[in-house]
Nucleic acid binder design. Sequence first.
DNA 1: TTGGTTTAATAACCTAAGTTAGCCAGATAC
DNA 2: GTATCTGGCTAACTTAGGTTATTAAACCAA
Lengths: 274, 274
Amino acid sequence: MNLQDSAIVQQFQQHCSLTEEEKVLLLELEQNPLKVNAGDIIWQENSKVDQFCTISQGWAYSFRNLGDGSRQILKVYLPGDIIGMRDFAFSNRLAGVAMIEEGIVSHFSHEHLLKIFRHSTALTAGLFAIACRQQAVLTERLIYLARRTAQQRLAHFLYEMYLRLGRIGAADEGRFRLPLSQEQLGDILGLSAVHVSRTFTAFREDGLVLRDRHRVTLPDPEALAQLAEFDGGYLNDAVPALFFDREWQSHMLAGPTARSDEQMPGKSKAASAD
Amino acid sequence: MNLQDSAIVQQFQQHCSLTEEEKVLLLELEQNPLKVNAGDIIWQENSKVDQFCTISQGWAYSFRNLGDGSRQILKVYLPGDIIGMRDFAFSNRLAGVAMIEEGIVSHFSHEHLLKIFRHSTALTAGLFAIACRQQAVLTERLIYLARRTAQQRLAHFLYEMYLRLGRIGAADEGRFRLPLSQEQLGDILGLSAVHVSRTFTAFREDGLVLRDRHRVTLPDPEALAQLAEFDGGYLNDAVPALFFDREWQSHMLAGPTARSDEQMPGKSKAASAD
DNA sequence: TTGGTTTAATAACCTAAGTTAGCCAGATAC
DNA sequence: GTATCTGGCTAACTTAGGTTATTAAACCAA
């Protein structure tokens, strides 16, 4: 694993220049790559929290099995995402995580996270920002699960995936691969599989979404976004605090002890680590 | 404001011993107390993110106004909570915050948060844990908004408030004050006010919840929890990482430079900062 | 190939919750 | 005092989405 291959390093560098030490700290997160198969459980609900994990290939999702036999999918993870950081505050997992398709994951420990906290304020702020972004994504989902129609929910999800996939180069011109069954989509959106099917049929008739198995085409992504009342603010924003922090550091550390690559990025850019 | 008055310090000390420097860092969060009235807007949706805020008296809530004129309440804040940390990663507020009743809030800056990151790994981990807990609470809400009936939603919310209020000494024997109108409850639970009323009526007939204006009585809180399929794991858990960190520090810093109050708490206890 | 399994489409029917409206009880104002 | 307003309760009606079932197509294993 070198610098260019690391999706994590790339994400941090989108909004913040990194020192060599910081790059090493991040690369260590991907030190133990492990090949996993479709359907593999990364960890079970209620299992002991001993480590976190990054995903560098494949799709995964976190889920909760509910008392009535149904299931809620909480989040879909794409390459470059950090999995399970929420469990930092808990001794047992609040949700299970499973692979949607085969891929590569790397485990890292609590201790490593604390090591980052101790050694780099910038990375700490970055991780904190990632946690905040995850909360924002969750909040957005909460709103549309609570208040929107099935069409809006599906439209919102598809458009969000379109944006996320676009950022990692896995979508172009409204086309992307979506390896999820309608049952899984239902578990994401709080809908029955039957109603997901009905909704896709309605979208097909309106020419909003074309779906052939796992290939999805959005002829007019913006129309979909409008239907979903999609407001991208929660995905596409700067991290002002990081920027400020670098300013502060270079101010205080100016002189022979200042780090070598301490330039300000012209304009801090969106992070997609969620 | 002295040590004993600070709800924030108390919360951190529930699960981690603090050095004097750390206590000062936390106390500074409540340096600028401001009296606010019922209905006052702390900040508006989309306004610029310039600071965060702690609440030491009164209730508040965060909300989003939706396109169709409806509104979703995202979170209810009680004394001791930190408000708006999620916005750390954004330049504009994703949600507004308003007071439910009069109270006291204290603003603090981005810069102060970074100062904490720089000066105390323990506080950083604690703040990170708080952010994780907030995510857990949000996740729980997402699940019941997506999957549960109106009765379960209301039962879950009431029981959660009962636990949170109990922890700050504002509930006893199933009785507490809940200064929320049925319309506000509907905005929290994704229900119409009419249906909230119907659900309260059903609970009253079943003897599960008695409500007189803002006084709520739960004759049998556990029955309510069972109805809601309430699993308290997301509220009541240790923060193992903090514990580990102290162990590490005392290991490395042992000797004359070790801090004075560096004892391990017998058993780390739940934090309620969410 | 066959037969089994998963996934998807559609129809028929059912139910939980939304909507609208009317009414009453406390507050608050004049 | 009376008028007004807000919050809450109930009833009647509507609707979005759930449930069950059937069929067909795609995929997979032997």
